[in-house]
């Protein structure tokens, strides 16, 4: 299929899109503010995937390669400013200890919705660190910010998410 895509075979390209689009749209939804932006990101990312297919060296996971392109495309949407002008005010807020089952009860879509409510900088760092598994050093390199900035954004993102989860629980009770 990859070879077919390199040869610009439309059928192969469509098959590849259908195979990975669902997963990649979910990735885009985590980085975008809303669904329309996520769909735009997905389109741009797949255009890049097809344009650069010949550069795939068949080393490592193909899905991982596509995911990396999708994430890079999403990151390009956010300038360094996003991380410098982020809202403050969460520094003195205590961190609530919530047990894992609380999150399990919420469901994937609800968690996705919570992530989308985070400010840009928090959301990106949280996604990269917590979901994708990048280190703060890697995040710093990717975003062009200090490691410490990444750490503080993550802490604030966690606090905010915990607060939102607690709020959800209160409403449920």
């Amino acid at each position: 299929m990859v070879q077919g895509c390199i040869r610009e075979d439309r059928a192969c390209q469509q098959e590849l899109f259908q195979r990975y689009a669902g997963k990649m749209l979910a990735v885009c939804l985590r980085y975008a503010r809303h669904r329309m932006e996520a769909e735009d990101l997905l389109q741009d990312a797949f255009v890049k995937v097809f344009d650069n297919m010949a550069r795939f060296e068949f080393k490592g996971s193909f899905e991982g390669w596509i995911r990396r392109i999708v994430i890079n495309t999403a990151l390009k949407n956010y300038s360094k400013k996003s991380f410098q002008q982020e809202q403050i005010g969460l520094d003195n807020q205590p961190e609530h200890a919530l047990s894992p089952p609380v999150y399990d009860n919420l469901g994937a879509e609800h968690l996705l919705n919570l992530v989308n409510q985070l400010p840009d900088g928090y959301r990106v760092v949280f996604n990269l660190y917590a979901v994708e598994g990048y280190s703060h050093k890697e995040i710093g390199d990717m975003l062009g910010v200090q490691e410490s900035t990444s750490r503080s954004q993550l802490v604030k993102a966690r606090k905010m998410l915990q607060a939102m989860v607690l709020e959800t629980q209160k409403v449920a009770i």
Binding site: F17, K23, L25, Q43, F46, P100, D104, Y129, A130
Partner: peptide, 27 residues
Amino acid sequence: HPLDEAFREQLQGLTVETPTHLWAQIE
């Protein structure tokens, strides 16, 4: 962090339905 793990478990492999018009727009 348990919060990180909870989000990763549920979001990392998440698949959502893709609108059909996206492929046409990519083409």
